[in-house]
Simulated scan of single mutants.
Amino acid sequence: MDSFAANSKKSFHIRSNSLPSKPHPVVDEINENLRRLKASEEATSSSSTLCQKLDGLQDLHDSIDKLLLLPLTHQALVDNKSVDDLLEGSLKILDVCALAKDILSQMKESAHELESALRRRKDDMIDVQKYLNSRKMVKKAIHKALKGMEKTSSQKSDESLEIVSLLKEAETVTYNSIQSLLLFVAGPKSPSKMSRWSLVSKLMQPKKVANKEDGAYGNEVEMVDASLYSITGHKSDFFVQVEEVQNSLRKLESCIRDLEEDLENLYRCLIKNRVSFLNILNHFLNH
C-alpha cells in the first residue's frame, strides 16, 4: 500500500486550490471537532478525559475521510507540494498510535500478572519488583517516543491552502492527544520519593475527590506506582495493605481496557484515512 507514497515524490503542477467561499458542510464538521479537541487540551489528563479525547479524534478522522472523498480535495492534494508531508505525517501518527497500543497492552498484562501473584502470595516482593522493572522499561520507551514527537510537531508548514492547513491542524491535534495519553501512562518521574503521609492521604480519598485534583499521584497509573514503591520501601509493616494495591491494580486494568478500545477504534480511522490518501495519489498517478 505504502509503495504509492514513494512514487508521490513526483513534481506536480501547483495551482491555487482552496475551499470555496462557502465551506462544504464536512469542513464545518471538521472545524467543530477541532474546536472541541483544542478546548479539551488544557483539561487535567484522567482516564475519562483521555477516553473523551480519543472518541473526539475518531469523530475528527471520520470527518476527514469524508473530506478526502470530495473531488475538490483530490485536486487540491494532488496539485499541491505538501502532499508528501501529509502522507509522511499520516504514517508517523499511525506509528505512534501503534506504539501507544503496544505500551497499553504491555501494561495491562503486567498489572494482571502482579494482581494474580499478590492474590496467591500476599508478600511476594519478586513480582512487585518485576512489575516496577517493567514500568521502567515502559517509561523509557515513552520518553524516547515523546522526544521524537517534539521534533516532528515543531516542524512548520508554509502551506496556506485551506484544505492542507485543515489536515495539518488535525495532525497536530492528534499528536497532542496521543502525547497526553503517553504522559498519562508514563506517570510520575519519581514515585519512590512520595511521602508516606501523602500516599496514605491519597489512598484514603474518595475517587470523586482524587480525580478532580491536578496534583501528582491522582490517577490509576500513578496510584499503583506510588503504592508499590512504598511497599518496597517499607517491607516490615506493609502500611499500604496488599488488598488496597490489588484494588488499584484492578482499577488500572479496567482503565487500560477502556483506553485500548478507544485507541484501537482511532487506529482503524487513521488507517482508513491513509488508504484514502494513497487512493487519491494512485488515481492521479495513473491518469
Score class of each variant (00 low, 15 high):
residue 47 S to C: 09
residue 51 C to S: 14
residue 146 L to S: 06
residue 29 E to V: 00
residue 40 S to Y: 04
residue 72 L to M: 12
residue 59 D to P: 00
residue 33 N to W: 03
residue 62 D to M: 07
residue 127 D to Q: 10
residue 89 G to P: 02
residue 147 K to H: 14
residue 125 M to I: 13
residue 108 K to S: 10
residue 131 Y to N: 03
residue 60 L to R: 02
residue 51 C to I: 08
residue 77 L to T: 02
residue 151 K to A: 14
residue 86 L to M: 11
residue 114 L to F: 06
residue 86 L to E: 08
residue 109 E to N: 14
residue 111 A to F: 01
residue 56 G to F: 11
residue 33 N to G: 02
residue 125 M to V: 12
residue 78 V to S: 07
residue 145 A to D: 01
residue 87 L to R: 09
residue 149 M to T: 03
residue 35 R to K: 15
residue 109 E to D: 12
residue 42 E to L: 06
residue 43 A to W: 04
residue 151 K to C: 00
residue 157 S to E: 06
residue 78 V to P: 00
residue 51 C to Y: 10
residue 24 H to T: 05
residue 124 D to I: 03
residue 144 K to C: 02
residue 102 D to W: 03
residue 41 E to S: 10
residue 115 E to N: 13
residue 94 L to E: 08
residue 120 R to M: 10
residue 137 M to T: 14
residue 120 R to D: 11
residue 125 M to C: 02
residue 37 L to T: 09
residue 124 D to R: 02
residue 74 H to R: 06
residue 50 L to N: 07
residue 56 G to C: 11
residue 160 S to M: 07
residue 155 Q to F: 04
residue 152 T to D: 08
residue 29 E to R: 07
residue 143 H to L: 10
residue 138 V to W: 04
residue 142 I to R: 02
residue 84 D to G: 10
residue 124 D to W: 00
residue 117 A to L: 04
residue 89 G to W: 05
residue 115 E to P: 00
residue 139 K to G: 09
residue 24 H to Q: 03
residue 102 D to K: 15
residue 116 S to G: 03
residue 160 S to A: 09
residue 105 S to R: 11
residue 19 L to F: 14
residue 134 S to A: 15
residue 80 N to A: 08
residue 36 R to W: 04
residue 67 L to M: 14
residue 28 D to F: 06
residue 63 S to H: 03
residue 49 T to A: 05
residue 140 K to I: 05
residue 43 A to Y: 03
residue 148 G to F: 00
residue 67 L to I: 06
residue 93 I to N: 13
residue 44 T to S: 08
residue 32 E to Y: 07
residue 140 K to M: 09
residue 68 L to F: 03
residue 100 A to R: 09
residue 35 R to C: 08
residue 144 K to P: 00
residue 98 A to E: 09
residue 46 S to V: 05
residue 122 K to H: 10
residue 100 A to S: 15
residue 74 H to A: 06
residue 129 Q to R: 14
residue 100 A to L: 04
residue 121 R to P: 00
residue 97 C to T: 15
residue 78 V to K: 03
residue 95 D to N: 13
residue 71 P to S: 04
residue 69 L to M: 02
residue 136 K to Q: 12
residue 41 E to I: 02
residue 93 I to F: 02
residue 137 M to F: 12
residue 78 V to F: 14
residue 106 Q to C: 05
residue 149 M to L: 15
residue 149 M to F: 00
residue 99 L to N: 10
residue 93 I to E: 14
residue 68 L to P: 02
residue 152 T to L: 10
residue 42 E to G: 05
residue 106 Q to I: 12
residue 57 L to T: 10
residue 123 D to L: 08
residue 42 E to C: 01
residue 101 K to H: 10
residue 107 M to I: 06
residue 106 Q to S: 12
residue 112 H to C: 05
residue 122 K to F: 05
residue 144 K to F: 13
residue 64 I to E: 12
residue 90 S to L: 01
residue 59 D to N: 08
residue 58 Q to S: 12
residue 100 A to E: 05
residue 80 N to G: 07
residue 127 D to S: 15
residue 67 L to F: 00
residue 29 E to H: 01
residue 31 N to Q: 14
residue 43 A to I: 11
residue 33 N to M: 06
residue 81 K to D: 11
residue 120 R to K: 09
